[in-house]
Design a binder for these strands. Sequence first.
DNA 1: GTGAAAGCGCTAACAT
DNA 2: ATGTTAGCGCTTTCAC
Lengths: 338, 338
Amino acid sequence: MSVNAQAQAPTLEMVAARAGVSRATVSRVVNGSPKVKPELISAVNEAIAELNYVPNRAARMLASRRTESIALVIPESTSRVFTDPFFASIIQGVAMHLATTDYTLGIVVASEANPDKTRRYLTGGNIDGALVVSHHSGDHSYARLGRSVPVVFGGRPLHAEDNDSVFVDVDNISGSMTATRHLIERGRRNIATIAGPADMPAGFDRELGWRRAMDEAGFDTSLIEWGDFSPASGAMAMRRLLARNTPIDAVFAANDQMALGAYAVIAENGLSIPRDIAVVGYDDDALGSAASPALTTMHQSANELGAVMASTLVKSIEGQDVEHQTILQTRLIVRGSS
Amino acid sequence: MSVNAQAQAPTLEMVAARAGVSRATVSRVVNGSPKVKPELISAVNEAIAELNYVPNRAARMLASRRTESIALVIPESTSRVFTDPFFASIIQGVAMHLATTDYTLGIVVASEANPDKTRRYLTGGNIDGALVVSHHSGDHSYARLGRSVPVVFGGRPLHAEDNDSVFVDVDNISGSMTATRHLIERGRRNIATIAGPADMPAGFDRELGWRRAMDEAGFDTSLIEWGDFSPASGAMAMRRLLARNTPIDAVFAANDQMALGAYAVIAENGLSIPRDIAVVGYDDDALGSAASPALTTMHQSANELGAVMASTLVKSIEGQDVEHQTILQTRLIVRGSS
DNA sequence: GTGAAAGCGCTAACAT
DNA sequence: ATGTTAGCGCTTTCAC
């Protein structure tokens, strides 16, 4: 396994010769041009099949100045998002959608040590468009890319001034209001929240939704602790909440991972879910439904988020007008924990 | 956001003009050729910086017949591996390693409806090499790719005849023996296992390790149920195990997700971990350490697996000899569940 | 050590 | 509807 014996790939010219037509005609057939005589089309297709011809991507890119490839950009500091199931599902949605198109998906980890490397790659004509997901930062510093190449963001921009960028997001605010109201309807009064970082849109918005629902009901909003979306941080936040020695009969966690971290702490303290403390999460992870009791949560399709981002980008690349904002709905899944 | 106003990118020729040298020299500088006069090197570099020049990938690929890009191939049926944290970490490891090289990472979801599409893409000179990860199938049907392009597999081939392929794997057999022996040393006797699918190497090998350790101790190996590595399947397997009404004082699960699924069922049955049933998982997920009690597990660095796969592939592409097999070690992490 | 020139395989006017 | 002809931007002999 050391030598790379590339078999000589058949070229468009060879196909042309075999089919007895010009290279231009072969190119037209390959690219599905409408005006080629049917008989020639089949002749060409036969030759293609016999030769097992595959167009050379590089040549095509060079000549057409389109790359047919899009990049999924992940800020390095955020690269741990890989282990976040929600994020992983987004990639999956993107990949699955793109598989139905001719676009190729490239993963780019944006080195923060050398940001220009990434920027150059992205603006250097290597890609037709970019998807930027920074679940944990909401950083739209790549917004300027938008001037050289279409960009679609996952998650809303944190600052209003980035408002001209195109993004797809889940409805975090009303989702968390729904979750909190659900707890209120169940008769809970001392509802705490384990929030995500306030400098990330998902963290900020889910906290905001909880506040709104609580205000609306006239309840106190002092029962709040922050985590970083990891299970361990959820556990620590729960510990701090319990240490306050204030009555708590429910917890709304900004994601399932933190909710599950809280589960452990609640159990350790001899408390029962949902009898003593009801718990609601967010994201609808696979583990939530297998937990005991099964976790009530807000479902949102990360797959769909990814797919919508991808299709929005493709439309934009192809010159169609697209919505600047697309907000995907969430829905409450009531299970045993509330 | 509909028109794609590509600013005219500077070309190598423009750099040459500005630096007062020929295009060939610029090319040499860009590619780090050893024999260019230092003064010219700096002149060229200055021009490059001033123009903010970026080499055009397509042109380079076409002229050099190297693509500088590698594909990570994921069989469609396996695409849910995206939500498996272990797998997600592999991608992360690959991406991080590749970020230190000049190679670009492409994600290819291999459509099973149209396998030729993928095969052609991979063999059509679009990539310099491929990484194949099919955690859940061990399918080395892409082994033949090895004839046109270097391929490195994640996970060993399920069948011996695929033995000439290059792969990197974690040491599943001795890892699960270690886990099982640990349980035995703790005085457990009726040790059940929640195994993974037998048609996947990780499932098969982890079951085998458990069997070996049990045989070695002269214990009965009938306490086995299978899952599919998902939390829900782990819960169901645990339910079946408990329904046997046979004494069980420990469970070795083939991954943490199933172990955590089992946690829920054990709790539902009023049993205590580890007092009544000790539990050991595999993979060292983030959630395991936040569970209550914290999960004892086998740690293996998925990040490292990914990085090693990537570096092995790059070496192979560059004509160096590489090990056909690389087995990464695992280590036991003892926590509260055992 | 450096430059001139010939392609790499394809697309896209333009001509017919 | 099909063929002819220039390139796309770079690498790479081959001379000098």
